[in-house]
Amino acid sequence: MASHFVGDTALLTGRSLRHIARSPDTIITTTLMPIAFMLLFVYVFGGSIDAGSDAYVNYLLPGILVITIASSISYTAFRLFMDKKSGIFERFQSMPISRSSVLWAHVLTSVVATLISIVVVVLVALLMGFRSAAGVLAWLEIAGILMLFTLALTWLAVVAGLAAKTVDGASAFSYPLILLPFVSSAFVLTETMPGPVRAFAENQPVTPIVNSLRDLLTQQAVSADIWIALAWCLGILVVGIAVATSTYHRRNA
């Protein structure tokens, strides 16, 4: 059946992309929250935040992109859960198609949907005065980090979608992920935080990811943060795939 993996995955990905094309509101909804945070922080709180950057929106955008990803993948869990609930998941599993294709189709769709959300948020940021002189190579690196982070969180969403018993449960898992950037270097400098909070902020995945994105956007030399960021992403990805695969197979026991 492995020989059909690519073709089956492509067919099933086409199917879920069609879902997105027919209900674009799911993408609009996922961008609403990050855009609202961006407006709130730039135009309400931004005046009294000293992040040592030229324009606060330039400082803020990397964290907003992390929130965008976290918000977008909650729909991945939702879509997977709905497939499971409607019975179409079982129909696919009883057919002569590669079983992992069913999961990979959702993963690829999640990456595409998140990418669109990110583009929308960056366009809004440009309207709000975000500017970067980063070159093509830096942008490619930024895209690579965002993609890797999206993939990693997507596999967590797959676990949530597979394990959930209710629709609410399927999407609620992303709330902590959306809040994580607030206790990081995404909105303010970690130096301003009290000891334990600062220790948490500096040792959680969002801070190195945000710092690396910021360095690339402001054309600064990338620090060791990028390796820590990549290690976090790869770590989450490996754990996510392992747990998702075992959850998926346990369903058939």
Binding site: L11, L12, R15, S23, G87, E90, R91, S94, M95, P96
Partner: peptide, 30 residues
């Protein structure tokens, strides 16, 4: 799985696709 097809207790159809698209998807998957 090559020899069977299952119609479960609840109609397992894709609500967002059209009837024709549902059938064509199954045909391509088979």
């Amino acid at each position: 799985r090559e020899s069977i097809s299952l119609t479960g207790q609840f109609a397992a159809v894709d609500e967002i696709l059209t009837g024709r698209e549902n059938l064509a998807l199954m045909a391509r998957l088979r």
